[in-house]
Design a protein around this nucleic acid. Structure first.
Length: 834
RNA sequence: GGGCGAAUAGCUCAGUGGUAGAGCGCCUCGCUUACACCGAGGAUGCCGCAGGUUCGAAUCCUGCUUCGCCCACCA
């Protein structure tokens, strides 16, 4: 064995080995129970980032754990076409080249997209392989695959026929840059400093006026009413009267509506159904007309006001305010800090506009989705997100699923010359009703989340009955980042329940978000991005995985800390060398290339105190890790194994039994082999490369620890008595070591022996092995107590209930011990004075 | 505005009723035949603040402060 663990060649070799033995391949015909995961399909817009890496660790560790526990594991990988995101990436490229998609034309644009997919399709999956992901690569899926598209059309058609999908003009969040509608979930609110304008609307009757506070004076041209709260005494008699909007001088009614909060602003709200989602609802309730003064490009449409017409909204706002000021209609203007919606893909301010779109009526879908979680059929981890899920479903509005993009799944609907509109699965040649061949396809494409909402069952061959669907659906676990709870998780539950009749998964994990070392979200513009593959190169995949296990399920977002990854690289090396130690013990028997042989288990009475102690601890560790992993407590698992193998097995047990190992003691050899190999096996789900490479040093281990059975414990191992005894013994050894150091003596085991005698035997020394352990760890030579050794000047040590003294002929190397003893005396007398 | 979470050593974080912990960093010593990617030892904390419950609180309760995230009709 090399003197140090070398991750790179080891990982390469084991990746190959796992592929060779088909480790990730799932067999639907297997009699084993199923464990399955639909991997969240990464967007094909770039390369692996820390979130993907973390999620790979979470999923792969579970897959390996369940495989070792006798399950047939199916982990399906895939990629998402991510229409809006990909289109934006390509549009940015075009902009860099000084052109636009319109200049390029549809055909050339599509070629460009295909080339992009060609290049990047599967690239992230390849990178996941480097982290050790054992997906069933033969089942890889892409959301633009023909079979996948078919599923989308079937689902769309069903919902359309059931009346759960409809088309109609309604107010939507419009991104003027993407020139597309986006859903409520794709709007990101950001705080922004604006002006708050107080505007006077005169009453037509001439008896005074109403004051309205607004941030959007340019939309006054689209006002169709003023509204006050029902029962607001200040304005009661005004309801039903007419007011004049102060820009276009049109007459508009004063109405009352429950949407108005009398406490806010002036208590009077201007109603602009064409440019405000809230006002749109007010308008529906009162059957108000809709006026539109902003175009799909975000420019004013106001032919009668040449200074406003064609201006971007932001400019029009100040111009409108100036006009109002000039007319004396602007009462005052205040700075206002408020939340403004932005497109989450391109950052442009979203413009609420009324356009015809496709909608999903969500209420009928939402109730079962809520029930699945509140009944516990779907469990959410960490638990605090359960409330967020339920709250979100409770306040849901209809879901806008159409997008005006060039890229994506086309809405599978056409209209014939006679006005028959119908949904289809295969591209139609004629209208099914009138056989007209003059068909106009719908121009829009589908929201990406509509297609990814079908992922868990679409990838398993639904709707055709088949063995994989039967065996692996519903899936077991869904692991994802928390920011797509609404976008994706909720939609999967809604659509899964509707179309398969069951929940799409049983447990949802929201893993932590990895922040940069500076505590901010990782962003290229901030320069705090870390590439997980760089970390793999530098520290090894297992080190990255172990670190990821430690932070994955934390309550808070996790700040990236490279020193921790480095710490786990050292841990890997430590395990490597522990195995190397054992291997070297056997070199004389089996040669340099041989393997650590399996030995017959020694009879219980041949075990020493230390043997019984470490087996007892191994039993506890085994139980802890076996409970932790299926409970998604990765941190508990890795921490337990780290502490146990390093600070108990290596620091104490191996040091204590080195001599016995070299002397060929069969009990020590059996125990060491067993404890080390079992620890490696328990660690394998999290650190698969290293542990497989080390298990290879042991005779009679399978081709991969994934094929090994998850280890159990022997009923004879738990041994509180040995644990208690070792605790005392370890404390004694530590005390003696400190004592020797204070005496100015070398405390290395190879230093010249110091004679020590026992003046008083406490429980620390009652086990016959105890004195041997002290002299095995320290340069101590036991000598009989001298009759008057407790006189002044003989250094003494009180450790627990045991007292030791420096034996005859022993001499302190310095008087530091006296200073130390004096300090203790001073302390003790200080206490007395209190 | 509402909800959730966090605040513990210089840094990053574990720790949920019983003597304050880990990794990294820092100081001292040791290149001892598994490992210097190591070993031994050490220093370092009003556990955010103020109350309360309790024999006992980092841990439970209340209020406050600061930070983060999510939601909310941008008056």
């Amino acid at each position: 064995m090399d003197a140090a663990y070398q991750p790179r060649p080891t990982e390469q070799r084991w990746r190959q080995r796992w592929e060779d033995i088909g480790l990730g391949l799932a067999d639907p015909a297997s009699p084993r129970p199923a464990f399955s995961i639909a991997q969240p399909p990464p967007n094909i817009t770039g390369s692996l980032h820390m979130g993907h890496a973390l999620n790979a660790v979470v999923q792969d560790s579970l897959c390996r754990f369940y495989r070792m526990n006798g399950y047939e594991v199916c982990w399906v990988p895939g990629t998402d076409h991510a229409a809006i995101a990909t289109q934006n990436v390509i549009e940015r490229q075009l902009a860099d080249e000084g052109t636009t998609k319109e200049e390029l034309g549809r055909e050339a644009f599509n070629a460009r997209v295909d080339a992009w997919y060609e290049t990047y399709q599967g690239r992230i999956l390849e990178q996941l392989r480097r982290l050790g992901a054992t997906c069933d690569w033969s089942r890889e899926r892409f959301t633009l695959d023909q079979e996948y598209v078919r599923v989308i059309r079937i689902v769309f058609g069903e919902l359309y026929r059931q009346g759960l999908i409809y088309r109609g003009p309604r107010i939507v969040n419009w991104c003027p840059r993407c020139r597309s509608a986006i859903s409520d979930e794709e709007v990101e609110y950001q705080e922004q400093q604006d002006s708050f304008y107080y505007v006077r609307y005169p009453l037509v009757s001439g008896r005074g006026d109403l004051e309205v506070a607004t941030t959007r004076p340019e939309t006054i041209l689209a006002d169709v009413a003023l509204a006050v709260a029902p029962g607001d005494e200040r304005f009661g008699e005004l309801v039903g009267q007419l007011a004049r909007e102060p820009l276009g001088e049109r007459e508009i009614p004063v109405i009352s509506d429950q949407a108005v909060d009398p406490e806010l602003g002036t208590g009077v709200l201007k109603i602009t159904p064409g440019h405000s989602a809230e006002d749109y609802e007010v308008g529906e309730r009162h059957h108000l007309a809709i006026r539109t003064v902003i175009s799909l490009d975000g420019l004013m449409i106001a032919p009668e006001f040449p200074d406003l017409d064609g201006r971007p909204v932001a400019e029009a706002r100040t111009i409108a305010a100036d006009r109002l000021r000039a007319k004396g209609a602007l009462v005052r203007e205040e700075p206002l800090l408020h939340q403004v919606g932005h497109c989450d893909r391109c950052g442009t301010i979203v413009e609420p506009l009324v356009t015809p779109q496709w909608w999903v009526r969500v209420h009928e879908l939402a109730d079962p989705a809520a029930e699945a979680v509140s009944s516990g059929r779907i469990r959410i981890h960490p638990g605090q997100f359960r409330g967020q899920y339920l709250d979100w479903l409770a306040g849901l509005r209809d879901w806008c699923i159409s997008r005006q993009l060039w890229l994506g799944h086309r809405i599978p609907v056409s209209t014939c010359a006679n006005g028959h509109t119908f949904a289809w699965v295969e591209e139609p040649q004629a209208c099914p009703e009138c056989l007209s061949e003059e068909l106009t396809p719908d121009p829009d494409v589908l929201d990406t989340w509509f297609s990814s909402g079908l992922w868990p069952f679409a990838i398993l061959g639904w709707p055709e009955p088949n063995a994989a669907l039967e065996k692996f659906y519903p899936t077991s676990v869904l692991s994802t980042a928390r920011d797509i709870l609404q976008h994706w998780v909720v939609r999967m539950v809604m659509l899964g329940l509707r179309f398969t009749g069951t929940v799409p998964f049983h447990d949802v994990l929201f893993h932590a978000t990895i922040l940069g070392a500076d505590g901010a979200r990782m962003a290229k513009s901030r320069g705090n991005v870390v590439d997980p593959l760089d970390l793999v190169d530098k520290y090894g995949a297992d080190a990255l995985r172990a670190w990821g296990a430690g932070v994955a399920m934390g309550a808070q977002d996790a700040r990236f800390d490279e020193t921790k990854v480095e710490g786990f690289a050292h841990f890997a090396n430590k395990l490597w060398n522990m195995t190397r130690l054992l291997h070297q013990v056997y070199v004389a028997d089996v040669g340099e290339q041989g393997r650590i042989p399996e030995l017959p288990e020694p009879p219980r009475q041949d075990l020493e105190m230390a043997d019984r102690w470490i087996l007892s601890r191994l039993a506890q560790v085994t139980e802890k890790v076996t409970r932790a992993l299926p409970a998604f407590d990765y941190d508990g698992a890795i921490e337990t194994l780290y502490d146990f193998t390093w600070h108990e097995l290596a620091d104490w047990y191996l040091e204590l039994v080195k001599g016995r190992l070299e002397a060929g003691d069969p009990a020590a050899r059996w125990v060491t082999r067993r404890v080390l190999l079992q620890s490696l096996t328990l660690l394998h789900p999290i650190m698969p490369f290293l542990t497989d490479a080390l298990a290879e040093q042991f005779a009679a281990t399978p081709a991969s620890l994934d094929l090994a059975a998850w280890p159990g414990i022997d009923q004879s191992w738990p041994d509180p008595e040995a644990e208690q005894a070792m605790l005392g013994c370890r404390e004694l050894i530590s005390s003696v070591r400190r004592w020797l150091t204070e005496l100015g003596l070398e405390a290395n085991r190879r230093s010249s022996r110091v004679p020590v005698s026992v003046t008083l035997v406490g429980p620390e020394l009652t086990y016959p092995e105890a004195r041997d352990y002290v002299s095995a760890m320290l340069p101590v030579e036991w000598v009989p107590a001298a009759p008057q050794s407790d006189g002044d000047g003989t250094p003494q040590l009180v450790a627990g209930r045991t007292t030791l003294s420096l034996g005859r002929g022993g001499r302190a190397g310095s008087d530091r011990w006296k200073d130390s003893a004096n300090r203790e005396l001073v302390k003790a007398s200080a206490y007395r004075e209190i």
